[in-house]
């Protein structure tokens, strides 16, 4: 479904070129939920922007359903970390969700249906006519998720979407994402720096190395499909996986240290 091949990104500053991403190759099957986790500053955002078609890679390719991605593809939706900045503050919640559908030229009834469904799915039906800034941070991120869901993408990219919300809201939102993913069968690439979150959410976890970034490990999460905050997190297997990802990230950090020293 989504295929990233030998992706490299160098920020060109003449003498001070920065290689943010060195050589990334991985693939997401259709309907998979994959978490990307890595040490901070490992180029996760850069990678995501390349995949979303917002930024051209220096070399390598991104393919979505066989087509090369050079501009934001129509079958892809992105949820950004900065929920407050990714919503149109001058539009109601409903208008925010509906805007991309209008651009797709969907008929009015279909739009209304999709907006209602997606707001229902994130539990914001009662707030359709509010403005985003009248809502709490977690609710704003729900609006962004509803907008992505209503867009009916084949692939959903999420860039640390819960990094800026409080812990309880975060647990709710994690379950929301699992729920939506299971119901819609959409392919999800979820970027995070939180190891627990990666293991809890993902069917697979890709561990990235420090910058310049490569895929350091590819771990299949063999936890049951039905997960919940209490039992899953106490599951022995969860702890093992968590420990493995943690060890990988520590290794990634340490191996990067000498490189950063000079």
């Amino acid at each position: 479904m989504l295929k990233v091949t030998a992706l490299q990104k160098i920020y060109n500053g003449g003498a001070s070129a920065v290689e943010a991403v060195r050589d990334l190759t991985f693939e997401l099957a259709e309907g998979e939920l994959v978490c990307l986790v890595g040490p901070s500053g490992c180029g996760k955002t850069t990678l995501l922007k390349c995949i979303a078609g917002l930024m051209p890679p220096t070399s390598g390719t991104v393919e979505l359903a066989g087509d090369s991605v050079t501009a934001p593809p129509p079958d892809m939706a992105v949820v950004f970390q900065e929920y407050g900045r990714s919503l149109f503050a001058w539009m109601s919640v409903r208008a925010n969700v509906e805007l991309p559908l209008k651009e797709k030229k969907l008929p009015k009834e279909r739009r209304r249906e999709l907006v209602a469904q997606s707001l229902e799915a994130v539990g914001l039906t009662a707030f359709a006519d509010s403005y985003p800034w009248q809502l709490s941070g977690g609710m704003q991120q729900r609006v962004a998720i509803a907008r992505a869901v209503a867009y009916e993408p084949k692939v959903l990219l999420m860039d640390e979407p819960f990094a800026a919300v409080d812990a309880q809201t975060r647990a709710d939102l994690e379950d929301l994402i699992r729920n939506i993913w299971q119901r819609l069968g959409v392919t999800v690439l979820f970027v995070t720096h939180d190891i627990d979150e990666a293991v809890y959410l993902g069917e697979r976890v890709l561990v990235l190395s420090s910058s310049p970034t490569v895929v350091q490990d590819d771990i299949t999460v063999d936890l049951p499909a039905e997960r919940d905050q209490l039992t899953t997190r106490q599951d022995e297997r969860f702890t093992e996986l968590r420990a493995r990802v943690y060890a990988q990230i520590q290794q990634a950090k340490n191996s990067a240290a000498p490189a950063a020293a000079h």
């Binding site: 979303a52 501009a71 149109f88 539009m91 651009e103």
Partner: peptide, 19 residues
């Protein structure tokens, strides 16, 4: 971030200008 959002959701130039 908002500009990226607009691009991701395929907003056309005129819409982007207006909205």
């Amino acid at each position: 971030v908002l500009a990226d959002t607009a691009r991701c959701y395929g907003l056309r130039t005129t819409t982007r200008l207006r909205v």
